[in-house]
Design a protein around this nucleic acid. Structure first.
Lengths: 206, 206
DNA sequence: ATATCAATACGCAACGTAACGTAATGTGCG
DNA sequence: CGCACATTACGTTACGTTGCGTATTGATAT
C-alpha cells in the first residue's frame, strides 16, 4: 500500500548511520521549488541534487523515480496545507462560500506547482492516487458534509454529494490548465458555480 | 495566432522540392501511436523519426518541439474527430443524451492518447489552447445551442452554457486522470451529470 | 566508562547509455 | 538549378549506476 512511506523505514532495526531527515526534506523542498520555477518536465534529478546540496546516489537510494519524489511531496502534505481543511464546517452557507474561495485562492496562488503535479498525475497512477487522497477526497468530504445537512441527494443539490464534489474537483483542475490571463479575461465560470452551490446550501439551510 | 499551421507554409512560393505531405502525416501518426502505447513522457523525437521512417532533421525543420507536434495533432483534428460534432442538434433531449454519450465513449476509447495530451496541456500553454479550441469550445457551442432553445439562462439549466461546458470539460478531464477500474467502480459522476442535464432539457422541451 | 568495530548513509567523482539538437553529405523531386 | 529528403556523425546534457573515502550510529569488548 504505502510504499512511499515504507521507503523511509527500510532496515528499521540494526545499527548504522541513520537516514538524514535533513537530506530528505531538502530534496522535497528542491522538487517543489523547481517545479514551481521551471515546470515538471524541466526538472531533472541532477538539478534537484544540486539545489538540495545532496548527492545523486542518495536520491536514487530512497526514491525509485522522479514521480515518486513528487508523489511523496503530495503525500507528506507539503503541497496541500491547511486551506484544504474547512475553517468551520458548521454548514453555514457563508462559511461554505468562504471556504470555497479560500481553496480556490490557494490553488491559484500555487498554480505553477499544482500544474506540474497534475501533469504528472496524468502519466503516473501513483501520483494520481496521492493527489486523489490528499486533495480530491478532503474536498469531497467537506462538500459531502455540507450537503448531508440538507439530507442525502436533497432537492437542494439534485446531485449526490460525491458527484457534486467530483464535478467541482474537475472544474478546479480544468481551471488550472488555463493561463491566469485566460481566466481573468471574464471567462471564468467559477464564481457562477460557487454561487449556485452556495445559494442552494442557503436554501436548504433555511 | 496560428503559428502551428504557419510552419507548413514556409517559403510558400518559388521553386524547389515540395514538402512531403507523406512525411508530415507519418510524423503525426507516429506521435499519436507512441503516446497511446507508451505515454507522452516516454515519447522521444528519435522514436518518432524511426517509426515514421523520417529523418530527424526533417522533424526539427518543421516543428519547434515535441509539444508543437502534439499540438498540431490536436489542431489538425486527427485526435478529436467527428464525435465532437453534434449528430443532430435539434434540441431533442434524446439527441442530447445520445451525443453526450457518444463523446464520452470516444474519450474512453482513446483514453491513453488523451491522457498524454492533457498532461502536455498542463505544462504547455499552446497545447492547452489547442485543446480548448478543439474540444472545450465545440462542446460549449453545442450546449449553448441546446440551452438557447429554452431561452438563455433558462430555469432548465440555471447555469450558463459556458459554466456547463466547463463543468463538463472538468468532469471529462478528471475522469481521464482515473484508471478505468476506478471509474467502473460505480464511482463515476458522469452518468449523474448526464441525467441532470438531459432531464432538464426534457423538462424545458415539454 | 571508554575504546573499538561493523554497518549504514553520506557526498563526490566517474562511468556507459540514451536522447538531445545541429551539421555535413548525398540523393531525389520539381 | 533549388530545395526537401534520408543518412550519418558530432558535441552536449541527463540518465542511472558504481566505487571511493568520510561521517555517524549501535553493539561489543575491554
Amino acid at each position: 500500500m504505502c510504499e512511499l512511506a515504507v521507503s523511509y523505514a527500510r532496515h528499521v532495526e540494526k545499527v548504522g548511520r541513520k537516514r538524514s531527515e535533513e537530506a530528505r526534506a531538502a530534496v522535497l523542498r528542491a522538487m517543489r521549488e523547481l517545479v514551481t520555477e521551471q515546470g515538471y518536465s524541466h526538472v531533472t534529478i541532477e538539478k534537484i541534487a544540486a539545489r538540495a546540496r545532496v548527492g545523486k546516489p542518495t536520491i536514487y537510494r530512497w526514491w525509485q523515480s522522479k514521480n515518486a519524489i513528487l508523489a511523496e511531496c503530495v503525500l507528506s502534505g507539503e503541497v496541500l496545507p491547511t486551506p484544504v481543511e474547512p475553517t468551520s464546517p458548521t454548514g453555514q452557507a457563508d462559511d461554505a462560500a468562504e471556504w470555497l474561495h479560500a481553496v480556490l485562492a490557494y490553488i491559484d496562488a500555487n498554480a505553477p506547482l499544482l500544474r506540474g503535479i497534475v501533469a504528472a498525475a496524468f502519466e503516473d497512477a501513483a501520483v494520481a492516487e496521492q493527489l486523489s487522497i490528499h486533495l480530491a477526497y478532503p474536498i469531497e468530504a467537506v462538500l459531502q458534509q455540507w450537503a448531508s445537512i440538507s439530507g442525502p441527494r436533497s432537492p437542494a443539490t439534485e446531485l449526490s454529494a460525491r458527484a457534486l464534489a467530483q464535478l467541482f474537483m474537475g472544474a478546479i483542475v480544468y481551471r488550472l490548465s488555463r493561463t491566469p490571463s485566460d481566466v481573468a479575461a471574464g471567462d471564468d465560470p467559477m464564481e457562477e458555480l460557487f454561487d449556485m452551490l452556495v445559494s442552494r446550501l442557503r436554501i436548504a439551510a433555511s
